[in-house]
Simulated assay, not measured.
Amino acid sequence: MIDMALHQHEVEEAVAFLRERIPEPPEVLIQLGTGLGELVGAMQETCTLAYEKIPHFPRSTVTSHAGNLVVGKLAGKRTAILQGRFHCYEGYSAREVAFPIRVLSLLGASAAIITNASGGLNPTFRPGTLMVFDDHISLLGDNPLRGPNVEGWGPRFPDLSTAYDPAFRKLAQRISKRLGLNEVVSGTYVCVPGPSLETPAETRFLRMIGADAVGMSSVPEILVALHAGMRVLGISVVANVNDPDHFQPIRIDEIIKAARKAGPRLQQLVINLLAELIP
């Protein structure tokens, strides 16, 4: 049985710790995934806290994730950036993975932009494609909302009929066109446990069930953000695309390299989104 009283106490301790140290409560949170940690360079008036300094925050064990909470101004919005994330394949539960999102929601963030790097399943995609989530499929086998519900945090059974805010998605597409950003598409993301990468047969299966891109993160954080009543936008950098009939080895270092190459386009999109966003 999940000790919800202990979890609630740990969340409240982290909230109190951050409230004393950040200048203003954030309006927006942004979670940066594999190879996408450079957005913090565009922020102003920043306060940086390493995850290990924040009570009860998990520790990132993935080398491409810096492991910092950076709070400041970005495009005029009070923004909290999670520079790196946690994954269930590191040994964490979905509840632990989403811990920072719960904390930031209680600090006041009302909108969330969740980014990651993924593998393309849609054969029309190319490496570097930016996919705006229009839906997701979770094959993770765990849910951060499992166990006793804290009514003050959100409803017992959150509705996911429009998990990804339609106005948020339309704004992302409109800005992409205005900026001339090529290869920005919409699609369905599927989350798998990892850390093993997909076999050709698994790739065929994931295509068959309607997924356009696959990754090992983001859904726990998204579910907690939705539970907390936040508007959510998901964006995935498609780092590679594999044809299950002509399968090629998938190498993590190549995925990181491709995600970093697409980083400036994602940064441009996010900054312009924030400039026009009404949280």
Rank of each mutant, 00 (worst) to 15 (best):
L39I: 03
L145T: 09
H65N: 12
N122I: 01
G41R: 07
L39R: 02
P26E: 08
H87N: 12
K77N: 10
G180P: 09
A98F: 08
T203M: 11
L69N: 11
T46E: 13
P244H: 10
F57E: 12
L140E: 01
F17L: 11
A239P: 11
V219H: 00
A16L: 10
N143A: 04
G91F: 04
P144C: 11
P144W: 05
P195E: 09
G141D: 06
P25K: 03
K53Q: 14
T124H: 09
I54D: 03
P193Q: 04
L160R: 09
V150M: 15
I30S: 02
V238T: 05
M216H: 02
P144F: 08
S196V: 10
Q44S: 11
L39V: 03
Q248E: 13
R78I: 01
R204G: 15
L140A: 05
F99C: 12
R231P: 11
A259P: 15
G147A: 12
I255A: 07
V232Q: 03
N240H: 06
A117M: 02
P220Y: 06
L36I: 00
F17C: 14
I113H: 01
V214G: 13
K73F: 06
R169D: 06
P279I: 00
E52C: 13
E45W: 06
E202Q: 08
A109N: 08
I2A: 11
T61S: 15
L277A: 12
H227D: 15
L197T: 12
I114S: 13
P158K: 07
T79A: 08
P58K: 03
A213P: 12
Y92W: 01
V40P: 15
S93L: 10
A94M: 15
A262V: 02
V28R: 02
E52S: 13
I22V: 14
L18W: 00
E10M: 10
R19T: 08
V219R: 02
R265I: 07
P249Y: 02
L39C: 04
Q173Y: 00
F17P: 14
V237Q: 00
